[in-house]
């Protein structure tokens, strides 16, 4: 079965991203497919490569990166939500005249249409949020 996952909260403040990760991991281990993970609202903050959580805590961004690497996941960050919150890739940073970008590898920035497409293509879409 093909899943779409939407994550609406940032890491650490809320459990949403952790729950989504555990769900995605279980689904993949059972042989299901994740069509796309879409990060929206403060969920875009999961995609920063600049976070430095303490050693004894989990690194949510890294967890997603590793899961994506192992299973070729499509991790999409909403561009409109990302721009509001200062999550930029190199192209966007250049286009907006910013001095740096901060998106973690394995994530890509794209439009909201990617979420609707996930809703159309996936057999089930699950939302994790606050």
């Amino acid at each position: 079965m093909k899943f779409g996952i939407m994550i609406n909260e940032g890491p650490y403040n809320h459990q949403a991203a952790d729950s989504a990760y555990q769900f995605a991991k279980a689904a993949l281990e059972k042989g299901h497919e994740i069509f796309r993970v879409f990060f929206y609202h403060d969920g875009v903050n999961n995609a920063t490569r600049l976070a430095v959580p303490p050693q004894d805590d989990r690194n949510v961004t890294k967890m997603w990166q590793e899961l994506a690497e192992a299973h070729k996941l499509d991790l999409v960050v909403c561009i409109a939500a990302a721009q509001r919150r200062g999550i930029l890739d190199a192209d966007e940073a250049k286009r907006q005249g910013k001095d740096a970008d901060n998106i973690a590898s394995g994530f890509r920035i794209s439009g909201l249409g990617q979420l609707i497409e996930a809703g159309i293509q996936a057999d089930r879409l699950l939302v994790f949020g606050d």
Partner: peptide, 20 residues
């Protein structure tokens, strides 16, 4: 249920509504 059970439940039902 554990997370595997969560995955199974989402498959056994036709759609999922997350009350946030």
């Amino acid at each position: 249920v554990d997370y595997n059970g969560f995955v199974d439940l989402s498959i056994e039902h036709d759609s999922v509504q997350s009350w946030l």
